[in-house]
Design a protein around this nucleic acid. Structure first.
Length: 557
RNA sequence: UGGGGAGUCGCCAAGUGGUAAGGCAACGGGUUUUGAUCCCGUCAUUCGUAGGUUCGAUCCCUACCUCCUCAGCCA
């Protein structure tokens, strides 16, 4: 039931390119692709890429493929591939046709390699990895040719066939593209395109002992699928000449064009797969889907909505400049969606007992689930002689501008009576432990006469409320760029208060909520029943997705 | 002068040789039985710096400055 905002797409350089290609007749429609390696869980950066690629296909009435770049069997697993598909679908996208795999093209890739060898454009090299690094040169010095570079086509053909046949040990030889060891672009200094690796592949099993490299595979896979615009992040800019070189030298008619955009950097979080893995392995978070994680599964569990994440992606746009996106943009996008779709309900997370001294004759009242959407329905708001309110809503010595409860003061109990606090009862240490209050029986559903009551606070009738576990999340790191300093381990910046679990009370209507049900707890924020631990009709567990905007607290600081 | 990129409001980000969109944030004000939402208003004489071309430059040219990125048989 996510809302679909009727907003126009934001202009960006990729759309400009597409518009030009379409206008010039270079393509009649576009085909994009989202090409993850199934070696980990997707994060918010991938979410941006998904929204970009699938979004472009939608906007231009084209197609978008999901293709797994599964050319490094040692790192890949079916579990990852499955989670990636689930994440893409959850975000609200559907790939064109069946899922594609680079491994679908292993035979083609092999034959194209043979074609390259036949043209004298690839050779089998016996250099060790260390020797290869030495021969490669440096950023400022040209490399030098391998002594094996001039093997004959016949020898290369024979050697490559034997590599495939398993005659050589892992790492003993590689197939290299023969380009230019003096190129200022290191990617063009005879890059390896096939290596020998006896590893079990999740799809081809033990059929192959040689596997193609990314640079060689990606462009051919794109071409084979008829991709028109191959969009990736900026670090592949230097690889584009190689992408083009491979396709220019092969008998493939299709030549997709690669475009690069800057990867997303979100403040107070990290998106490095390696570091995310470190958090999981080090048990610093509960798992890949810990609600504090910037993974898609983590954001989902936290309560972020697909429409909210899509809107976030639209708002941050696509460019080539490095960025450091303010969390407020994400939170704003999430709140906007939740504001429209989340039923309102009451919860008290830091309870203070209130006794109503003149309860006799008090009534209950119906209240809307959403102030601007009567179609969401209504529910009864229970009242009782014993209530709980937020401890924060009472102050003996209120600061200037206070609109909440204070000794002798009146407030409106949301959806109920106007209440006055007559007495504060304290414990031995002087802490307020209970309030004795009285209600104005004439104020149910109407304003009191002769006076204005500004403040409104929420409450729950103890007798009717249900206990619930409420998990309050804050940012995972204490600094905006936790991994900016290479000298300091980002774990030093973990926020010790990123998770605060409290026992609170909720309205009984939420009792039968299914996992992943979203609510606004009035005046507190948006919450979502936990996917894993919440039990419908049983143990109630809520995750705080995001707080409400709070101009009062902000003003106090 | 190794190659490749980027520099427009606090954070994102359009834009074009014709006189700086939008969003987020912020700040005022109004409505409100959520200090929420909603509504109204304010928020870059200026586009990294310095020159040049031009009637006119953020956009073209030159030089400079800053930042990012590349030396896996990873992707």
């Amino acid at each position: 039931m996510s809302s679909t905002p009727l907003v126009s797409p934001v202009s960006n350089f990729i759309r400009t390119v597409i518009d030009g290609d379409l206008a010039a007749g270079r393509h009649s429609s576009i085909v994009t692709r989202f090409p993850p390696e199934p070696n980990g869980y997707l994060h918010v950066g991938h979410a941006k890429s998904i929204c970009l690629n699938f979004g472009l296909a939608e906007d231009y009435h084209g197609k978008c493929n999901l293709r797994f770049d599964d050319t490094n069997p040692e790192k890949e697993s079916c579990e990852y591939a499955l989670s990636i598909q689930e994440d893409v679908r959850w975000l609200g996208f559907q790939w064109d046709g069946a899922v594609h795999w680079a491994s679908d093209y292993f035979d083609d890739l092999y034959h194209y390699a043979v074609e390259l060898i036949g043209k004298g454009l690839a050779y089998v090299d016996d250099l060790t990895p260390e020797e290869m690094r030495e021969y490669r040169g440096t950023l400022k010095e040209a490399g030098k040719n391998s002594p094996y570079r001039d093997r004959t086509v016949a020898d290369n053909l024979d050697l490559f066939a034997r590599m495939k046949a398993g005659e050589f040990a892992d790492g003993a030889k590689v197939l290299r593209a023969k380009i230019d060891m003096a190129s200022p672009n290191i990617n063009m200094r005879d890059p390896a395109i096939y290596r020998i690796r006896r590893a079990h592949h999740i799809r081809t099993g033990d059929k192959w002992c040689i596997y193609p490299m990314y640079d060689y595979t990606h462009c051919i896979s794109d071409a084979l699928e008829g991709i028109t615009h191959s969009i990736c992040t900026l670090e592949f800019e230097d690889h584009r000449p190689l992408y083009d070189w491979v396709l220019d030298n092969l008998s493939i008619a299709c030549h997709p064009r690669q475009y690069e955009f800057s990867r997303l950097e979100l403040q107070y979080t990290i998106t490095s797969k390696r570091k995310l893995l470190q958090l999981v392995n080090g048990k610093l978070v509960s798992g890949w889907d810990d609600p504090r994680m910037p993974t898609i599964s983590g954001m989902r569990r936290r309560g972020y909505t697909p429409a909210g994440i899509r809107e976030f992606s639209r708002r941050v746009g696509v460019s080539k400049s490095s960025n450091n996106v303010d969390m407020a943009i994400m939170e704003g996008a999430i709140r906007e969606d939740l504001e429209a779709i989340a039923p309102r309900v009451v919860a008290v997370i830091n309870p203070l007992k209130v006794t109503i001294t003149n309860f006799e004759g008090a009534l209950t009242r119906e209240a809307d689930f959403h102030p601007n959407h009567p179609e969401f329905g209504r529910r009864m708001v229970a009242f009782g002689s014993e209530l709980v309110i937020e401890a924060d809503d009472f102050s003996e010595v209120p600061p200037a501008g206070w609109k909440r409860l204070t000794l002798g003061g009146e407030i409106r109990l949301r959806h109920s009576y106007v209440m006055r606090c007559d007495e504060a009862i304290k414990d031995a240490e002087g802490r307020v432990v209970e309030l004795r209050c009285s209600i104005d029986h004439a104020t149910l559903g109407k304003n009191p006469e002769g006076r204005k009551v500004k403040g409104v606070i929420h409450f729950l009738s103890v007798q009717h409320a249900l206990p619930a576990e409420i998990r309050l999340y804050d940012r995972l790191f204490t600094v905006a760029s936790p991994d900016a300093d290479k000298e300091v381990d980002f774990c030093n910046y973990l926020n010790p208060a990123s998770l605060n679990v409290v026992q609170g009370w909720v309205e009984a209507v939420v009792q039968d909520a299914a996992p992943e049900t979203r609510y606004q707890f009035e005046r507190l924020g948006y919450f979502c029943t936990d996917r894993r631990d919440h039990q419908q009709g049983g143990r109630l567990v809520f995750n705080r997705t995001v707080t409400l905007k709070d101009s009062w607290t902000k003003e106090q600081n």
